[in-house]
Amino acid sequence: MSSPSSSSSNTTTVDASTMNNRENHQKPIPLKGRSLWSDAFRRLSKNKMALTSLIILGLYSLTAFLTYSNIIVSDWSESIGPSYAPPSFEDIRLLFGTDIFGRSVLYKAIKGTQVAMSVGLIVGIISVVIGVLLGAIAGFFGGIVDEIIVWFYTTLSSIPNIMLLIAITFILGKGIFSVYLALGLTYWVTLCRIIRGEVMRHKDRDYVQSAFSLGASRGRRLFVHIIPNVSHLIIIQFSLLFQTAIKSEVILSFIGLGVQGTPSWGTMIDDAKLELARGVWWQLAAATLFMFVIVLALNILGDALRDALDPKLKGKD
């Protein structure tokens, strides 16, 4: 995992002009400054690597959506040739050869995209919801609430992750649903820590104080004023969580605790473990390639987002 603690310290200070824009609606400012978001977008669009990654992410998402709605590779489970046919260019389906049952490895890898992307997305959302909510509450209210939440996540994070995952999948039974929950319920801790720290910094800032003096309730101060100002951290963390979840799904499926019955890159690599003995490398290659590209893209994107959203780097193009 990348080191999120450093990212938090880099990106804490919100530019004063941005704040004025948000808080001060009365007077139009003659020279309109760019908001954090439009500035970030401008900087991101200049970064070719990041743009490519974004496009890759888009393509994967599209593929996942299309496989999910059965528009493409709905016939992945059909045999298209003999068992373990090597890769060939004769037929697009044979690009990565066939598996033990003569099914197209390419189709399986594409079908695996659906599993991977859904795991990334859903795990990301679960962790963000839990992490942000608990982090914000702990940071904002402090005291006993904070202590309880901190105790909870410290305890949770002191249990080796893989053990926890195995325990959860054993309780819930195996399947994709368990993978979502198992990963979602264990991966929120880092985000929770970051948000807690950020909210602590922000809650005494002037803009929050002014909201308070205008009579804003606690909930309004937290969710309307503070959260939007730390939301860039959530986005960065989300992109990192996304790829961690994908990798974890592959590992879980590899050790037989992941998805059952539909192709996953993890089960493909698990198959490859045996097949390599007979010189069948294409299933491993396809699964690794598909995973490599998306994980790399998400990593680059995560870094680019961090740079783009860091106000300290503003203007250093």
Partner: peptide, 17 residues
């Protein structure tokens, strides 16, 4: 839970599906 057993189960699954 071995890989071979998973493949065998997958074979039965495919046949019955």
């Amino acid at each position: 839970n071995s890989t071979d057993a998973r493949q065998m189960a997958e074979f039965t699954k495919m046949s019955l599906e």
